[in-house]
Nucleic acid binder design. Structure first.
Length: 808
RNA sequence: GGGCGAGUAGCUCAAUCUGGAUAGAGCGCUUGUCUUACAAACAAGAGACUGCUGGUUCGAAUCCAGCCUUGCCCACCA
């Protein structure tokens, strides 16, 4: 073994070996019939690994490696999402560099170009997952645009259609004027923006022009589509106005004043101009009051033909005209700077235009019902529990889902229209209209929301709708792990579609992992410049250290990235390497001889077994931070600082008994650490004598309570060591074992204690007094649990004993 | 505006659900030690009104109430 551990070379060597030897493949090394299945959340095909992926990859890999070692038939499914709007956005930007648009080259060429682009620059993340040591079954990589995946999506769509859950409706949607498509509420991000809030008077139609209802607006251009003014029914200011008509500025249309309880009396003037075509609230109010729904803004965000003489202007220009017109007539009462949050497209950050358009929708109430039941009955459990409640609430409140997008990159809707307007919805392209037999048919040009196809991920990757052996074996799966923000977009949808299609939930546990924040506590984001590329720490500290560090800090909802945690991981890897060298250097040519017998040998085996139980318990609860602490202290404190020091003299003597136990203990230690730090443990494993197999498929240690160690005896030695080091006084030890360990670890002949006996005596006297005080408190003795009182008594005795040794 | 977190040593975090033992680690700091695995180490040490104010209790970092600070997610206040 090299004297220094070099993670970089070692890690890539093992990553290649594991994959080449087939250990990542589903079922590799399975020693039992149970399956254990996790699907990686398919990352965007154009994306790079970010810190959230790295944490999530670490979490999933711990679970997968652990179960593989336990003998499960393990499948960790990799793959990519075609990410409709995100990918199209990237390719359109590339085109824009050449001064071209997608319209210039046409749909077919654009889709071809996108495939080419992905060929060149896409699909990088799986390589980065490999570099993190993630044991995904890369041979099974799937893509949501694979032919058979497309077939699954279309089949699912037809199924929902047959269920009557898909329909077309003219409704207000979020419209991105850059991408020229509808997007869902969940794809809209709100950003603070500065605007001007105008207060404008709408005069009564039957008045003298001085009297009217004043409204506030930040978008004066939408005045052209005003069809009414709404006030709260109980607002005394407007009691007289309800039912009268007012005149809309510029258009000079007479529109009614209506009463609606959704109006916030506190805001602005307490009166709302109703623009159903361009505002979601106004849309609802308009429908309920039977108002018309004119649309004056076009798909490009500029004024449309319906804006009459303002057609073709930008909204700013049109707004200025309208304000100018109103100003000349003395209708503008106020203009004030106004900062508010505005919806923008999450991809291009264009200001979202709410507008009415004809879109395809998926009903939500009916499909969600079985999923809500499954969550309430805890057939699926979100972790942590707070997210479980959130997930249920989200399903209960979900509005219908706008599934159509006016994009080119994606799954085209399997809907064909005949010249008579009949719709044919089938999986395979129909030759003629199903209703009247007429041709030609025209296929719906819209594509599906990206998340429509991601919702099928757990079973479409297994070959559904075909009844494949994989589907039968690996569905339902076990665990899903992902970020908080896609609970509604993705996780909930997998649950309800799984129940719909296969009658069973796709997994039983849904982990919502921490959000990794930047060092300053803000969100990691490219635009803020706060992002840290996980490949940096992987290259600098190693994948094992990075995995360890991310898991260590993953305990709370939001967590700051920390180089310190990763350095701790590096230290642990180095420590393991060195202690393995100590043992192996002295193990050559030694034939292991007997069962562990001595105190320190039984003690370390008992400690390792206790850590095994703790780690299993932590992982069963998906508490990965806790497990890193257990493993760190087992390695440093117990294994290295006590056990290894205690057996050193006999290792130097090449005592076959000591060597045998040391090797056995080291093997168990490596096995426990392998899921967290796979590379360094496999590297050391490869140096162990008589090791045919790989650690990655070695059996996870069974419970081992054969050696009930006298833990109290070891603790006596540890106390004696501390007293000696502080005071220079040797406390008398009872057994030969205790004296031997003390001599080996402390080496009193070489190390002089600090000799501060007085300070030590003082400290012990204070402890004695404190313990005596507590035990003298009758109410404490009466009320506290017996174990607490007993522990206090024990402590008091120990302090008195130690005090006697020092004083004596 | 709604939901969910966080506030403990100079820094990053444990312990809080289920009240109890000297509030633990790592980094940093001080002191000593190159000891045939490791100075990327070992040993000893300093360092904490556990955000604030009350309450419950023999006992509160932990439970209750209120307040302050801060983060994330969600949201149609024109």
């Amino acid at each position: 073994m090299e004297s220094r551990y070099d993670p970089t070379a070692s890690e890539s060597r093992w990553q290649e070996a594991w994959e080449a030897e087939g250990h990542y493949a589903a079922g590799a090394g399975a020693r039992r019939d149970d399956t254990y299945v996790i699907c990686v959340p398919p990352p965007n095909v154009t994306g790079d690994l970010h810190m959230g992926h790295a944490l999530n990859g670490s979490i999933q890999d711990v679970l997968v490696r652990w179960h593989r070692m336990r003998g499960f038939d393990t499948l960790w499914q990799p793959g990519y999402d075609h990410a409709g709007i995100a990918t199209q956005n990237v390719v359109e930007k590339e085109l824009a560099k050449e001064g071209r648009t997608r319209q210039d080259i046409g749909r077919e060429a654009f889709v071809d170009l996108t495939w080419e682009w992905l060929e060149k620059t896409g699909r990088t993340i799986m390589g980065q997952f490999r570099r993190l040591g993630c044991s995904l079954d890369y041979s099974r990589e799937r893509f949501t645009m694979d032919d058979d995946y497309v077939r699954a999506v279309v089949t699912f769509f037809v199924r929902l259609w047959d269920r009557g859950w898909i329909y077309r409706a003219n409704r207000i949607v979020n419209w991105c004027p850059f991408h020229q498509t509808a997007i869902s509420d969940l794809e809209v991000v709100h950003e603070e923006m500065d605007d001007t809030l105008y207060t404008i008077r709408y005069p009564f139609a039957d008045g003298d022009g001085r009297d009217g209802v004043s409204v506030a607006t930040v978008r004066p251009a939408t005045i052209l589509a005003d069809v009414g003014v709404a006030v709260h029914p109980d607002d005394p200011r407007y009691r007289e106005a309800i039912g009268r008509e007012v005149v809309v500025p510029y258009t000079e249309q007479r529109v009614p004043v209506v009463a609606d309880e959704r109006i916030d009396r506190e805001f602005g003037t307490g009166a709302l101009k109703v623009t159903p075509g361009h505002d979601p609230l106004d849309f609802d109010i308009g429908r309920d009051h039977g108002l018309p729904e004119p649309v004056v803004i076009g798909p490009d965000g500029c004024m449309s033909e319906q804006a009459a003489d303002l057609a073709g202007l930008t909204q700013e220009e049109a707004g200025a005209r309208v304000i100018g017109w109103a100003e000349e007539r003395g209708l503008v009462e106020k203009r004030e700077p106004y900062r508010h949050s505005v919806g923008t497209c999450e991809r291009c950050h264009s200001r979202i235009e709410p507008l009415i358009s004809l879109q395809w929708w998926c009903a939500r109430t009916e499909p969600a019902r079985p999923a809500i039941a499954a969550l309430q009955e805890r057939r699926v459990r979100y972790h942590p529990e707070s997210q479980h409640r959130f997930a249920i609430a989200s399903l209960e409140e979900a509005p219908d889902w706008c599934i159509s997008r006016q994009l080119w990159w994606g799954h085209q809707l399997p809907i064909w229209t005949c010249p008579d307007g009949h719709l044919t919805v089938t999986v395979d392209e129909p030759s003629a209209c199903a209703e009247c037999g007429v041709t030609p048919l025209e296929r719906e040009s819209d594509v599906l929301d990206t998340w429509f196809s991601s919702a099928l991920w757990p079973y479409a990757t297994l070959g559904w709708p075909e009844e494949t052996p994989e589907l039968a074996r690996y569905y339902p799966g076990d665990v899903n792990s992902t970020a908080r923000e896609i609970i509604r977009l993705w996780v909930n949808r997998m649950i309800w579609t799984g129940l719909e299609v296969l009658g069973d939930v796709p997994f039983t546990d849904s982990i919502i992992h921490s959000t990794v924040l930047a060092l300053d506590g803000r969100r990691m984001s490219k635009s803020l410049g706060t992002g840290i590329d996980p490949m940096e720490p992987i290259d600098e500290y190693g994948a094992d250290a990075t995995r360890y560090g991310l898991l260590k800090i993953s305990s709370t909802q939001d967590v700051r990235f920390s180089y310190g945690a990763i350095e701790e991981g590096r230290k642990l890897a180095i420590k393991l390497w060195n202690v393995a060298r100590l043992i192996l250097q002295n193990a050559e040519d030694v034939t292991p001889a007997r069962e562990p017998r001595d105190l320190e040998e039984q003690w370390i085996l008992a400690r390792i077994d206790a850590a095994r139980a703790d780690v299993e318990d932590s992982w069963a609860r998906f508490d990965f931070a806790e497990s890193t602490a257990t493993l760190y202290h087992l390695t440093f404190d117990d294994f290295c600082d006590w056990y290894a020091e205690a057996i050193k003299p006999r290792l130097y003597d090449r005592d076959p008994a000591a060597v045998a136990t040391a090797l056995a203990a080291l093997e168990r230690l490596l096995a426990l650490l392998h899921p967290v730090m796979p590379h360094v443990t496999e590297e050391i494993w490869s140096h162990l004598p008589a090791r045919g197999s790989r650690l990655i498929v070695a059996p996870w240690p069974d419970p081992d309570d054969r050696f009930a160690a006298d833990a109290a005896a070891l603790e006596r030695v540890q106390e004696a060591a501390q007293i000696f080091r502080r005071s220079g006084v040797q406390v008398e030890l009872g057994s030969e074992d205790e004296r031997r360990i003390f001599a080996a670890v402390v080496r009193p002949e070489r190390v002089q204690g600090d000799g501060n006996r007085d300070a030590e005596v003082e400290r012990l006297r204070k402890e004695v007094a404190r313990a005596e005080g507590m035990l003298a408190n009758e109410r404490f003795v009466a009320n506290a649990p017996d174990a607490v009182v007993a522990a206090e008594r024990e402590k008091l005795e120990r302090y008195r004993r130690e005090l006697a040794a020092l004083d004596g």
